[in-house]
């Protein structure tokens, strides 16, 4: 079973993953224009892009524990998933900036006055160096050790993303807490000591 997954995954070209990743945002924008996103298309796009970004981020975090604990090797897709996560979060941010808040002074005020937006923006800022260095040249130039140190930023970024989701809803809702729990669980798995 594991061998089948591994050999199947080897045959999937990574460009296909990138190509498929473009579909959800394009579909959301089209549906928003044509009335397919319900009564409040701006909020629907904003929330869907944010949620997709968080889901992709969690999928990226699954790659390492899947290999270590289940022997499923999807490591060649990790960079693609990480970059698509960044792309989705960028779309989420753009919908908020351009379609939702619109007003520059209010955007700036929101970023430093409102904790959940501050937290979300901090997560996005942490992802920028990760996205910029997600290429072979950067790994070569920086050296593996420095590159790994920088990419440790993934962990604070994903925690801030999960916290952002918990903070932005009215009251204590179940779904955001489940997402944050999954994120913390995946990070905790990395603390399990390696057997010798």
């Amino acid at each position: 079973m594991i061998a089948v997954v591994n050999s199947g995954a080897r045959r999937v070209p990574t460009w296909l993953v990138y190509a498929l990743a473009v579909v959800p945002p394009v579909w959301l924008f089209y549906a928003g224009l044509t009335g397919g996103l319900g009564i409040d298309p701006v909020k629907a796009m904003e929330q869907q892009m944010g949620l997709l970004g968080l889901q992709l981020f969690i999928a990226t975090l699954c790659i390492t524990p899947l290999r270590r604990f289940a022997g499923i090797n999807l490591i060649r897709f990790r960079r693609a998933l990480g970059l698509i996560t960044f792309f989705y979060i960028l779309c989420h941010l753009l919908v908020w900036l351009v379609l939702d808040v619109q007003i520059l002074s209010q955007i700036i005020a929101d970023i430093y006055k409102r904790p959940y937006i501050t937290v979300g923006m901090a997560a996005f800022v942490l992802m920028i160096p990760l996205a910029i260095t997600s290429n072979n040249m950067s790994v070569r130039r920086m050296g593996a050790a420095a590159w790994n140190r920088l990419h440790w930023l993934t962990y604070p970024a994903v925690i801030l993303g999960g916290v952002h989701y918990v903070m932005l809803v009215k009251g204590w809702q179940i779904q955001p807490l489940i997402y944050l729990g999954v994120i913390l669980g995946l990070l905790a798995l990395r603390q399990v000591p390696r057997r010798r």
Partner: peptide, 15 residues
């Protein structure tokens, strides 16, 4: 505390 009340999005006014 978490958002401005100075403006509002009018439901039904489009993307």
């Amino acid at each position: 505390p978490r958002w401005s009340q100075a403006t509002e999005r009018v439901i039904g006014s489009g993307l």
